[in-house]
Design a protein around this nucleic acid. Structure first.
Lengths: 340, 340
DNA sequence: TTGTACGCGTTATCAA
DNA sequence: TTGATAACGCGTACAA
């Protein structure tokens, strides 16, 4: 069970009775090559439990085989999901991930990130909100020949590949169902507009109302900032209205939890007295009573795709800038119901 | 502004008119060395903006200046805090961090982690619960000459440095205050024992009861597994007892949130009808109503210290195994009060 | 106090 | 379709 001596490409080559170059070929799926040769090598690799040394691959290949994930003040669960997805792609593509937390409000943020990327010799970086919307950042990075891929940027750049989620469509459907369930006064709590998704979600709301032939009542739309506190404050505003809404859509789950709190305080029961829907499928949505109905982006998959886009770009394939789009999933739980 | 050709140690050596070995010496702070020589080299390094290639350092040297953080199925916020702390130490000590999520239940977990560490040429790894309690893992790692530091291990090994938190003491104080506030029937929800902290917290509970001259009523102690669902189930059990507790301590916040749900379902008001206290200061503790009183470990600081312990060990200093201990902080919020 | 030559484990070049 | 050998950028003996 103990692997004492290090097994290198040479070990494999000897065992398979071929040259190291041949082993390298099967590793990198180079063609053409005789099937029997490839099988011999594969067999040796398996028996030896051989894994290429990333450092050697990087050194010889003139790449660092490292990509960076840059993030700032944003929810832990979101970053973890992103990270998990990126890591999955990395391990499959033979890459290492370097994490770089930072403060998006810092004056020197652009220089910091550029330096980080240069100093670590990164092959590229992945940007997530709100950083991917930072004016000048992407330009500075590309100017220094650092590849970039954005996740959920507010606007899609021509030069930078990105992956995003069709938030608008998902919200539109969800609000549509609320309307069908008899709700006509539906409150909406907006998120911080440094996240592109905020506008998307708002548009989904408005679009659903319009499609149903309903008026858009601006007094039912409140500005939050994605925190529990802001959600609670907006909830209080909404629920203290003379003609209070029978349903509230919050642009994320933290704010929806805030609405729960505001309802709880004045004795309103969810979902009987008030329907609430959130967005994100954050942990809290499964840790409150009643369980929060929400919308879930396939964040891990999105992040994984973003990483693959970046790695492909590094490898020279897929030089074209691509934009991938995923659709969100509606999670029907316990916090909303028919209105009579 | 654009740096076109790559600058290597040779570039620096040429510019400073010394040999590469000399540059290498100043990079690694080797002595003795003439001050004027060092200055020349430093000057060249700065002017060229030279940064050593991590891949080359790892491949050629004994040290890679990379450490690993290995974690498995555990809460996002916990991992993020750990990560932030480790990263802080790393950036200050000139280290890189490689993240490695894995499945602690996997059959091949030990081999996987050893391979990961060898393969990435890591100088050492940081283990967190429940992985740091995995039988045989630490042994396998040290056998392969990979330094290890544990965070909150169930038992402190002689050979492996660790940092931990005095959970027992904190819980003891908190339960003591509940008792002073008039609670005599206090429920306790245990956590999963693959986390060393579970036992610590239970001991704190029992110790507080004993100190106050109270009996330990085993029927008031329920086994949870750190999830919301288990907390809710245990809460239901506890609250349906003939002589139900007036206060419940849950070994983490997710389970405390579960208790909130169980109370909510049967119309019990927190904190008026029931006091609830959790542990961890997880995001959910600030996203429910009323705000959850809880106990907070200085996770970031602990992680930072763990990383420094590891890096020191790598550098040869501090070869002795050390065990650092931190104390937890009691957060008094809204979910507990006097009992009459 | 400083320099030379070789090795680390891969990929790339050019033959065979 | 395969193989010998030179890079890749740095650390480490061993010399000077």
């Amino acid at each position: 069970m103990t692997v004492l001596k290090k097994v290198t490409i040479t070990t494999v080559a000897n065992k398979a009775e071929v040259s190291v170059k041949t082993v390298s070929r099967v590793l990198n799926r180079e063609t053409p090559m005789r099937d029997s040769t490839r099988d011999k090598v594969l067999k040796a690799i398996n028996e030896l439990g051989y894994k290429p040394s990333l450092a050697a691959v990087a050194l010889a290949g003139r790449q660092s085989k490292m990509i960076g994930l840059v993030y700032s003040n944003i929810s832990a669960s979101y970053v973890m999901s992103i990270q998990t997805g990126v890591l999955k792609a990395c391990s499959e593509e033979g890459c290492n991930l370097i994490i770089h937390p930072c403060d998006s409000e810092s004056k020197s943020i652009i220089t910091d990130i550029v330096n980080f990327a240069k100093n670590s010799h990164l092959d590229g970086v992945i940007l997530i909100p709100p950083l991917c919307n930072k004016k000048g950042l992407v330009e500075a990075l590309t100017e220094h020949e650092i590849n970039v891929v954005n996740i959920s940027p507010a606007i899609k750049s021509e030069k930078v590949p990105s992956v995003c989620c069709e938030d608008k469509a998902a919200v539109e459907v969800m609000i549509g169902e609320l309307i069908e369930a008899g709700h006509s006064e539906i409150g909406f709590i907006k998120g911080d507009f440094s996240h592109g998704a905020s506008l998307e979600r708002l548009m989904g709301y408005k679009s659903a109302l319009l499609k149903a032939g309903l008026q858009i009542n601006e007094s039912l739309i409140k500005q939050g900032n994605f925190t529990f506190e802001s959600g609670k404050a907006c909830g209080q505003d909404l629920l203290s209205m003379a003609n209070r809404p029978t349903a509230i859509f919050a642009s994320n789950d933290y704010m929806a939890a805030g609405v729960f709190a505001s309802a709880y305080d004045i004795g309103l029961k969810i979902p009987n007295d008030l329907s609430v829907v959130g967005f994100d499928d954050a942990p809290v949505s499964r840790q409150i009573c009643p369980l929060l109905s929400t919308i879930k982006q396939p964040i891990e998959k999105m992040a994984e795709s973003a990483a693959r886009l970046l790695i492909a770009k590094n490898k020279g394939r897929g030089n074209v800038s691509r934009h991938l789009s995923f659709s969100a999933e509606l999670l029907y739980r316990e916090s909303h119901k028919q209105h009579h």
